[in-house]
Design a protein around this nucleic acid. Structure first.
Length: 416
RNA sequence: GGAGAGGUGGCCGAGCGGUCGAAGGCGCUCGCCUGCUAAGCGAGUAGGGGGUUUAUAGCUCUCUCGAGGGUUCGAAUCCCUCCCUCUCCGCCA
């Protein structure tokens, strides 16, 4: 949620930001609506003040004077109720729109509206090109480590079974990444994956991305698409002492995504599935510090990907391709030899105060209570990282070398 | 799933229809005092929204005593629904 102060004091910035996202919103009309609702609120509160004052005096009255005062207070109460209802209705109407507006775009986010408009910042590593390369589905079959046919029988499309050494590799990746992140102060967390709607509103996934989220209707709970949701909402309604910031967490969870609207896209193998495990970094920090924390998260991601010896490029995501909560986002795209192209394997966003305002997460300093900034970044996203390892480290004979860093964790040097 | 108890400010804890956003204690902050100092004295110390304002200052109004509704001129206090916590029983990874 945006600060309404932006609408009142700096509508041009708001208009420009929405424009960069390719959204057409009548900012002036919203401003007038905001003024109207405030007037309505003020009117209701004046009536209330009058009613309360009169009500208080009743305690000291007696006889006809009292009866008269009670009668007058009664009609005041009715007037107030009506005025309050009117003010509440205006607020609700305003908020319904306001809640759908995405975060202000950072000036340094790339221009453009689509994935193709992302700005490439740098490349690292030698990419594997040419014919005769196997993709993860072939390699998976060859070694019996991935099965998407049986998962289709059991669960439908976009699921997969991981077997044996590949399953071991997943656990190794988690353990290894935790070991590398903890020295930076990331607290390992295993959070809930079923959450209330409030957590999804608070993190900006609702109302916009409701159709991407699995709902457990009988219990009014939702399956998270990322542990970002449960990590952010964990500190909802809290006020930190300033010296506790930044607060860093590394949450491990299974992630569930409906992938609505992705029909026909990435249907092969386990590249895009409804369920995968992910280690996610999350930071609560001082507003002046969030740009640095964002670079910090990207640096941690690059360290991990480099240590796995995966060729990649870093892109600055275009304004129009940002999620609602993000002001700026970097993706790391690893090279996938089976597709002969770079594809996203990590993503890190600075969501500034967009989530903290909704979740009421503040900190205390000399000038009072202020909203923290929140940031998230993928440490290791399972399906894709496993695919990238398998495809990039395949040998001519079809065997797969385990990246050096992981060998102590899995106890073998190669698959096959 | 069954039975019971309860949710008040950073924490503990009073309040049981009006003068309560709320006694008292602890903690914390500031000031004072004091050579015996993890002592004494004084003051301050919740959050949100509106108005005024250059202002996240001040002043002021309003809302919030788990959440939402209701009764009443008036509710932390009475009624209803929901959520959560704790105890016991049952079941169980």
């Amino acid at each position: 949620m945006l600060d309404v102060g932006v609408l009142r004091n700096d509508p041009d910035t708001l208009r420009a930001s929405l424009g960069r996202r390719g959204l057409d919103v009548d900012v002036a009309a919203l401003g007038e609506f905001d003024a109207r609702r405030r007037r309505a609120r003020a009117e209701a509160e004046e009536l209330r003040a009058e009613q309360k004052e009169l009500g208080r005096s009743i305690a000291g009255l007696d006889g006809p004077a009292k009866d008269e005062a009670v009668a007058r207070a009664g009609s005041l109460a009715d007037e107030y109720k009506a005025a309050l209802a009117a003010a509440d209705a205006l607020d609700a109407e305003f908020n319904a729109t306001w809640l759908t507006l995405p975060n202000l775009v950072d000036p340094t986010a790339a221009d453009g509206l689509t994935e193709e408009d992302a700005e490439e910042l740098r490349r690292w590593g030698e990419v594997l090109v040419g014919d005769g390369l196997r993709d993860h589905v072939e390699l998976g079959e060859l070694h019996g480590i991935i099965d998407v046919e049986r998962s289709a029988k059991v669960s439908g499309t976009r699921f997969g079974y991981l077997f044996g050494p590949l399953a071991r590799l997943e656990f190794a990746l988690v353990q290894w990444a935790m070991d590398r992140l903890e020295p930076y102060g990331f607290v390992p967390v295993v959070p809930p994956v079923l959450v209330r709607a409030a957590a999804l509103f608070g993190t900006g996934f609702f109302p916009g991305d409701r159709d991407q989220v699995y709902a457990v209707e009988a219990d009014e709970l939702y399956l998270v698409g990322t542990s970002e949701v449960s990590l952010a909402a964990m500190h909802g309604d809290e006020i930190f002492d300033a010296d506790r910031l930044p607060l860093r967490y590394a949450g491990f969870s299974t992630c569930f995504r409906r992938e609505a609207g992705a029909h026909g896209k990435d249907t092969r193998g386990i590249f895009r599935v409804h369920q995968f495990d992910k280690l996610e970094m999350f930071i609560f920090c001082h507003p002046d510090d969030s740009a640095d924390q964002h670079e910090f998260l990207l640096a941690r991601e690059e360290e991990l990907v480099q240590a796995l010896d995966l060729p990649y490029r870093v892109v600055n995501v275009a304004a129009g391709d940002l999620g609602a909560s993000a002001a700026k986002k970097y993706d790391i795209e690893a090279w996938f030899p089976g597709q002969q192209r770079y594809r996203e394997i990590t993503s890190t966003s600075n969501t500034t105060d967009f989530q903290s305002r909704r979740l009421k997460i503040r900190f205390r300093d000399e000038s009072g209570n202020r909203l923290v900034h929140t940031l998230n970044g993928t440490a290791i996203a399972m399906g894709r990282t496993l695919i990238a390892i398998v495809e990039n480290h395949q040998q001519p004979d079809g065997s797969i070398e385990v990246p050096e860093a992981l060998r102590p964790y899995v106890g073998f040097n190669a698959i096959g």
